[in-house]
Nucleic acid binder design. Structure first.
Length: 430
DNA sequence: TCTGGGGTCCTAGGACCC
DNA sequence: TCTGGGGTCCTAGGACCC
């Protein structure tokens, strides 16, 4: 039996934990650069503010209904997420953290305690210990657990917990669920399925398997099998190593000069290298991309991307920044209003401790060079982890003229002492 | 003025091997 | 008229997820 625990309106709920005045009010959290809605309270949903909707198109509604608007505070949300996950981990031995706000928990063997009682207890405990409200769906496959969770969220009568005990329960639930709501069925597949008379999840479950296999491929066939109670997606207990690492941002205002782009790319490459060391992996390829707004008119629209091989698989910030800068030089076209850029590391391999054997044919890196690099990165990470990211940084990563908009950022309540002190003093001011 | 960021997996097709 | 069989690896693009 799989339980899918999903936090309600997660980012909004995080803001509410530290600002209870937001309870009962319409609240939205915006994407980076204050662009789109990425989390909405129930009240905000009721106002018709759509998921992913660009904020500037809904300015009037936001103002008229005095909607509370927040810039995304991912440091806060990430920390709150680990609190929720740690709480859940206390309930069952096997669990998969599926996303920042969701976890699958294996409740096989909990029949004796009771699925319902266990789920209710999880819900109460997470709420009590973290302040975050969650809904829980239980079923015999992950895909059905997702479906049950959706019912638990949409239908108040469930009180936040929906259990599909057997095939009959599942079929009843599927009959009232649009196929577009099924996990793994996106926009394109929905169009195709609807055009062929498949409207509900139950229609998909009952469709001829060969037909599903042919048009929705192996992934769609798995979805169908899972809807019919055949579990093909096991719990992933250990997170697999990442295969690529990406850092990219939209700019607050368009950037036109190569120097500013170089600083942005240096910054993104630096962040990628830090994530890479956190993963304990080495990168062999660096990709840089830069683009204008996709809403830009033809002659001013541009999307450039190019990949370069690093001479040696590495996790050294300096080597990665150098490579990224070189790629940028080949992509830059003058006169374009650039709105976004990014760096991607790929062809990743785990650090094994025997990397000194990996050298280039013509310019073998002396061992001392690699050892120095490793020690330098250790020192860099130690300083920045103690005094804050960016305390010690390379000179190319200094100017911030490309910075994104973030006008309504909440304090880092759980991770920054200075922000806590700020809260206290502003409270004292009343 | 203003439209996010970070991932994974699958397939098809081309280039290449013997 | 007619041109094998069996593979691997790589990449681009599409689709999906949160």
């Amino acid at each position: 039996m799989f339980a899918l625990v999903d936090c309600n309106n997660f980012y909004v709920s995080c803001e509410r934990v530290f600002n209870p005045g937001l309870n009962g009010r319409a609240v939205v959290v915006l994407s980076n650069n204050d662009g789109c809605f990425i989390s909405r309270s129930d009240e905000a949903k009721a106002l018709g503010l759509p998921m992913g909707g660009p904020a500037f198109k809904f300015r009037k509604i936001l103002e008229e209904h005095r909607v509370a608007v927040y810039s995304a505070n991912f440091v806060l949300y990430g920390d709150m997420s680990s609190r929720v996950m740690n709480t859940l981990a206390g309930f069952a031995p096997a669990m998969e953290v599926y996303s920042i706000d969701e976890a699958f928990v294996d409740l096989t063997g909990f029949e004796r305690i009771g699925f319902e009682a266990t789920a209710r207890s999880m819900r109460r405990t997470v709420r009590r210990d973290t302040g975050i409200p969650v809904c829980i769906g239980l079923a015999t496959t992950k895909t059905l657990a997702k479906l049950a969770n959706r019912k638990a969220k949409k239908e108040v009568a469930f009180g936040g917990v929906c259990i599909l005990h057997d095939r009959e329960d599942a079929r009843r639930a599927m009959a009232s669920m649009e196929v577009s709501q099924v996990w793994g069925i996106g926009r394109r597949h929905t169009e195709f399925l609807n055009a062929n008379g498949v409207r509900t999840a139950l229609d998909l479950a009952d469709a001829p398997t060969e037909w599903v296999r042919r048009h929705l491929h192996i992934t769609g066939a798995r979805v169908q099998a899972e809807l019919n109670g055949n579990s093909c997606l096991p719990l992933e207990l250990v997170r697999p190593l990442k295969q690529s690492i990406c850092t990219s941002r939209s700019f607050g205002t368009a950037v036109t000069d190569e120097a500013s782009l170089g600083q942005a790319v240096a910054h993104f490459a630096t962040k990628c290298a830090l994530k890479l060391r956190g993963e304990k992996e080495l990168a062999s390829l660096v990709t840089v991309f830069l683009c204008t707004s996709p809403f830009e008119e033809r002659p001013r629209r541009y999307y450039g991307t190019r990949t370069a091989a690093l001479p040696v698989a590495t996790q050294d910030t300096l080597a990665i920044v150098r490579a990224a800068q070189a790629v940028l030089g080949t992509l830059f076209r003058p006169g374009m209003p650039y709105k976004k850029a990014g760096v991607i590391l790929s062809a990743l391999t785990p650090v094994t401790g025997t990397e000194q054997h990996q050298t280039t044919l013509f310019e073998p890196e002396p061992l001392q060079v690699q050892e120095r690099s490793a020690r330098l990165m250790q020192a860099l990470d130690a300083v920045n982890s103690r005094y804050g990211q960016g305390t010690l940084r390379i000179a190319a990563d200094t100017n911030t003229s490309w910075k994104q908009r973030q006008e309504k950022l909440s304090p880092h309540y759980t991770t920054n002492w200075d922000d806590i002190i700020e809260v206290v003093t502003s409270d004292e001011r009343g």
